[in-house]
Simulated assay, not measured.
Amino acid sequence: VQTEWAVTIGRNTQAAFKQRYALFAESQQAPNPRLSLAGAQDKIPVIWRDETFYLPQGTAPSSHIVKFAVDGRDHVIFNELYLNTLAALVDIDCPSTSVRYAGRYPLLVVERYDRAWVNGSLQRIHQEDLCQAMGMSRTQKYQEYGGPTLADCFHLLRDVCKPPAQSLQQLLRWQIFNVLVGNSDGHAKNVSLLQDAKGKWRIAPAYDLIGTVVLGYDSRLAFSIGYQNNAMQLLSRDWKLLAEQQSQLSYPFIKREIKRLRELLLRFADSKEMQQALKDAGLPDNAWLRLQQQRHHIVKQCKKAALW
């Protein structure tokens, strides 16, 4: 399966590879850069400054990641922009995201959260995704393939994040958000930890937020809630199991977080604030209608959440 998937991605991204080089001016002196980053979407690290993309050379850190539309599926780009923007509006820490174009092709430009400006110089912040932090292979990023469970993730945060409360709360909100928006691809490599200069760890901002259910990808949750991995069939008993067996957080606390998030999502999903934020981020005028299926899914899930 992995071999077939790799071949399919390779064939579908031929156009994207051509787009890559169209972004940068040719240079006879620059060495051939390492362009690929891990993941299903074709993406490259760049330095983005004054609306211009530059390839980092040598050990220079990149400032942003550019994601390409795969096989003309530009709605994936717009969907991620929508959900990243929505996450920020409902107080989930999320990197700044915008859309730019290479010719007629949309590009998603995501600010790197593992960077910091120190004395006028861009510096890397050490990060590890949860597979790395748990000593697991990247092939184990999904729970159903032998990867960590939500219980393992909560346990790790309690062990390494001191104090852990904020990181635990963000992990919970991230999973609730995934359930409500239909992001079934929130796996262990899509959660990371950041280490500051004093050696302290905290959970990183949310990233790779995509409405996979609406876009027609596998709808099974990467992390189950209790024993349920179908977000459309969740019941209150599943959240009770999350409280009692997976998170060691109280069920009343989880219910309050669900209520808070569902109310914020219903408020912002179709709001003027959302439409203006998307416009400011570069969403073309004709793309808003293409996001309505995603919005309808969120509204439907939020109505179900009232019973949890």
Rank of each mutant, 00 (worst) to 15 (best):
V76E: 11
A116T: 13
V70C: 11
P95N: 05
V109W: 00
L55C: 09
G58N: 11
L130H: 06
A38N: 06
R100P: 05
S121V: 15
Y82G: 00
P61C: 06
I92F: 01
Q132G: 10
R73C: 04
D74Q: 14
L89I: 08
I65A: 04
Y54H: 14
V70E: 08
A69G: 09
I65W: 05
S62N: 12
R138H: 12
T59S: 12
L122N: 09
D71Y: 10
A116G: 01
A40E: 08
I47F: 02
R112S: 04
E51Q: 15
M134I: 10
D71W: 07
W117S: 09
A69Q: 03
R104H: 13
P33K: 06
Y54T: 14
V46A: 11
S96R: 14
F53C: 12
G120E: 01
S62T: 05
D71L: 08
D74F: 14
R138C: 10
S36R: 15
P31W: 10
D71T: 05
G120W: 03
F53S: 02
Q143I: 09
D91L: 05
L83I: 12
E144D: 09
F78C: 03
A40P: 09
V118L: 14
V76P: 02
Q57P: 09
R34S: 13
N84I: 07
S98H: 05
A102T: 13
L55P: 02
G120I: 03
A102S: 14
L81K: 02
L37N: 04
R124D: 15
K67Q: 07
C131V: 12
S137Y: 01
A88E: 02
C94P: 08
G58P: 05
E128F: 01
I92Q: 02
V66A: 04
Y142L: 14
L122W: 06
P106S: 03
K141V: 08
T97C: 11
A102M: 13
R112A: 11
P61E: 03
D71G: 09
E144K: 15
A88L: 06
V109I: 15
Q140Y: 02
P106F: 05
T139G: 11
R100H: 12
P45S: 08
L107T: 00
E144S: 13
N79M: 02
S121M: 14
L55N: 01
P33D: 04
N84K: 06
D129H: 07
I47N: 11
A102R: 10
S98W: 00
R115M: 10
D42F: 15
P106G: 07
I92G: 00
